[in-house]
Design a protein around this nucleic acid. Sequence first.
RNA 1: GGCAGCGUAGCUCAGUGGUAGAGCAGGGGAAUCAUAAUCCCUUGGUCGGGGGUUCAAAUCCCUCCGCUGCUACCA
Length: 573
Amino acid sequence: MKRVLITSAIPSVNGVKHLGNLVGSMLPADVFARFCRARGYDTLSICATDEHGAPIELAAAEDGIAVKEYCDKWHAVQKDLGDRFGLSWDHFGRSSSPQNRALTEHFARALWKNGLLEVRTTKQAYSATDGRFLPDRYVIGTCPHCGYDRARGDQCENCTRVLDPIDLIDPRSAVSGARDIEIRDSQHLFLKQSKFVDKLRAWIAGHVHDWPVLVTSIANKWLDEGLQDRGITRDLEWGIPVPDDIAGGQLKGKVFYVWFDAPIEYIGATKEWADKNSLGDDAWRDWWYGDKAKDVTYFEFMGKDNVPFHTIIFPAMIMGTGEPWKLVDRLKGFNYINYDGGKFSTSGKRGLFMDSALEILPADYWRYYLMANAPESSDSNFTWEHFAGVINKDLADVLGNFVNRVTKFCVARFDGKVPSEGVYGEDENALCAELDRRVAQYTDYLEALEFRKALGELRAIWVAANEYITRSAPWTHFKNDRAQAAVGIRMGLNLVHLFGHLAWPVMPNAARAIHHAIQDSPPVIPWPDEPMKEFLDQLEPGQAINPPDVLFAKITDEQVADWQLRFGGMGES
RNA sequence: GGCAGCGUAGCUCAGUGGUAGAGCAGGGGAAUCAUAAUCCCUUGGUCGGGGGUUCAAAUCCCUCCGCUGCUACCA
């Protein structure tokens, strides 16, 4: 059986994610995972919260709670929102887990043993008032180039020049405002990325045809600019401590850089999953390690900001262990979705976040819209008018109304049972032939991770059903040829049944409601692989149906106006 | 500054050498089962500007303009 491993870039634990975060990683990963399960593949879908890094430490401090407590709280919130969005992870882990700590230590030891890590002394900003080293971006001061007085230590926002905290005039702590910034020596571990350039280049060259241009161009850009060795430890309290047996204990009290342990958490979370279900070590290792994992196809989903970490640093780490860990096979990167012409912003609370999205509409509305307009070839733009137009036309009018008109007619004229009279003729054969093509195309697009095109094809399938029922016109035939009307409605009901199957990866709840109009559905609604002539002729005549209530309520102009007001935006960023 | 992506119909986007496309919006018609939902026909573009290669360019090359992103301690 085909084995498919799916990971989505792990979201930072701090706060509720916005729709931009969702559309580039978690949502497409879930649509694909559901599709794979529907096709009967052996599928493992993994995500987690990324719980390390200076911003998280500082956010906890701001809330006046311990970092552990902060992470517990927001992990639970994100898990709950994921569940409510229908994200069907096999496991939603935590990068702070003991499993990830053990694996991170393992990776570091293997890299150390292979001579691919080295200790270097770096100059770091330190504030005695804060009692801590400050990451570059947490030192602010006056830009030496343009005089902007709130330049960050890593870059001046005003003139965009890249800076070093040492360059700043009148430097101060962004945490406390303290001015006692001094530069101290600090020792850190560096990953000798420069040793991997040729290997990485060859590996990436092998994927120019199955990765998006976006991904290979970002990866090659990093290689072309020359890979610098990268610091993989930080002077922080919260994180995975560097074990004493590395570098003779010189790094006591330091933790690994968040981007060192975060990708390892894909593996860590898989071990968490195995442990939680008492499956034993082989259960997780067979997905990731050695010969048993060779038949696994590994898919990663992420926004473009994550691409360098997944095409350069993490692969270098894996290659550097010299151990047979799985490298990604298919890397799907996404651009950004903008909100009313500006950026989504977590800190600026601009845009639409997962919790408020669910307050106003069910998850499936968002799932459909976001995948149908996924930012695959370039950034895309969310506007309330466009959103309402798509939902109303595609979901309410084309799909929802089809289900409604067919089931209502069946109740009114055929006693709410699948009619038995008549036999399929030329029109039905032609429809089956068309749907054979279209369903195959839809399937191919999903296999190819072309979500926007896939959903366009799904929509075309719904349109084909409306065209058929118009040609078939059972409401006309009913008056003098009941058998002819029965054929149209029987096919109509079979089409509704088909829609329940086809929509499930994208809209699991709506798909279930549609399927329920015909009959109960299994937990995983399987993919309709058989010829349409068979699939669309399988409902038992005489079987009772359950006409649903309105499946998709239309969005009114008043709602659009209300939401625009409530969620701000309107072009300002 | 450097690099990358993008620029095609009013809007959102397909289209990598061979007669400019889809959906939505707009216009006309049909139908009346249905959430006034559907179906058919249709208006609409010198493919960001300019130059070049070619029998042929939205597509390849050069150049300019615009938007967006990245630029390694924000993930």
